[in-house]
């Protein structure tokens, strides 16, 4: 009976051992993500751009409103990027420091992108999951409403709104927020429909877990992968939309600025040989878009390893 006893002892030892930490599906995905070089490069770029937006101002010699009277009138010759006079990125046409203007534009563009995507994530996820989970007539009504909203040429409406009610930050957020969640809700609804018939949802229903709890506890966590991927791709889309509107001259208002507005100004003066006025905002704009796309791609691969 020696063997039996040693077996029992080892079993007892195993039973009394501390609780084992589980390896969650998220942790697995994180590991895969960190192994993806392109995604990591994208992430580093985004972190750097983020740091630039937050701390860039502490390195600025000039504020974004000051006019440098030494430069005024002779921007082409005096307003070039230079370390000596503190205009690292040069100045704009009026003699304002382009470095601090770019910091400000970065702040605003990132904020527009992130707020737009956040609205999309919250509203779109809950709306789509509710429609998909309850199904039937509720679903029909909710999704027809989305169809109708989508059929509106939103750029036209947005421009009209901005013209009618004046250009303001809140108007811009409202307009972008209103349209950003539509696609998200469709994607989430589709995913919910396929999740809804999985057995673990049925198990929860069989025990009597209320509908809203099933959505929050069982459906949404299983959607987060898709939502996260879509959200990272949505941020650059929002930035593009804002930039386009600003490029048309309808976006944020002076003295505020954004990448789109800066690029627009830079493009307007390109014939006078002030190339830096276009190059610096455009550079930040492009690397950020690339960063988001790489991260989004990496997230998709990490969360859905079967795809590859």
């Amino acid at each position: 009976m020696i063997i039996e006893q040693s077996k029992m002892q080892s079993l007892a030892a195993r039973m009394s051992k501390d609780e084992v930490k589980g390896r969650s599906p998220w942790a697995d995905a994180r590991k895969r993500f960190f192994r993806n070089k392109a995604a990591m490069a994208g992430l580093i770029i985004l972190i750097l751009v983020g740091l630039f937006a937050i701390f860039g101002n502490s390195f600025a010699v000039w504020s974004n409103e000051e006019l440098d009277f030494n430069v005024m009138g002779q921007v082409t010759t005096m307003g070039m990027p230079s370390l000596e006079n503190g205009h690292y990125f040069g100045t704009d046409d009026l003699g304002r420091d382009l470095y601090s203007r770019t910091v400000q534009g970065t702040q605003i563009s990132l904020m527009v992108g992130i707020v737009g995507a956040a609205i999309a994530v919250i509203v779109g996820t809950l709306y789509g999951a509710t429609a998909g989970y309850f199904g039937g007539r509720t679903d029909q009504l909710m999704m027809r409403a989305v169809d109708i909203l989508m059929s509106i040429p939103y750029m036209f409406v947005l421009i009209l709104l901005l013209v009618m009610f004046g250009r303001s930050m809140s108007m811009l957020f409202l307009g972008i927020g209103l349209i950003s969640w539509l696609d998200m809700s469709r994607i989430v609804r589709g995913q919910t429909l396929s999740l809804k018939n999985r057995e673990f949802i049925e198990a929860a229903r069989a025990t009597g877990v209320p509908g809203w709890k099933i959505i929050i506890r069982h459906i949404v966590p299983n959607l987060l992968g898709v939502v996260a991927v879509y959200a990272t791709l949505l941020v650059p889309l929002m930035i593009l939309t804002e930039s386009f509107i600003s490029f048309l001259g309808l976006g944020v208002q002076e003295p505020l600025t954004s990448w789109g507005a800066l690029i627009s100004e830079g493009a307007g003066t390109i014939n006078y040989g002030t190339l830096w006025q276009l190059a610096f905002p455009l550079f930040f704009f492009c690397i950020t878009l690339f960063g988001f796309f790489f991260v989004g791609d990496g997230l998709r691969d990490a969360l859905d390893p079967k795809e590859r």
Binding site: G22, S24, E199, F200, A204, A206, T207, R217, P221, N222
Partner: peptide, 27 residues
């Protein structure tokens, strides 16, 4: 619903992949 409980066909599919065993059994 607490008097009648069910055990399902597909063992893995009937457990929420994002929840720990403890959370699943406790639900």
């Amino acid at each position: 619903r607490s008097d009648i409980q069910m055990v399902f066909q597909d063992p893995l599919a009937s457990l929420n992949p994002r929840m720990t065993v403890g959370q699943i059994i406790a639900e």
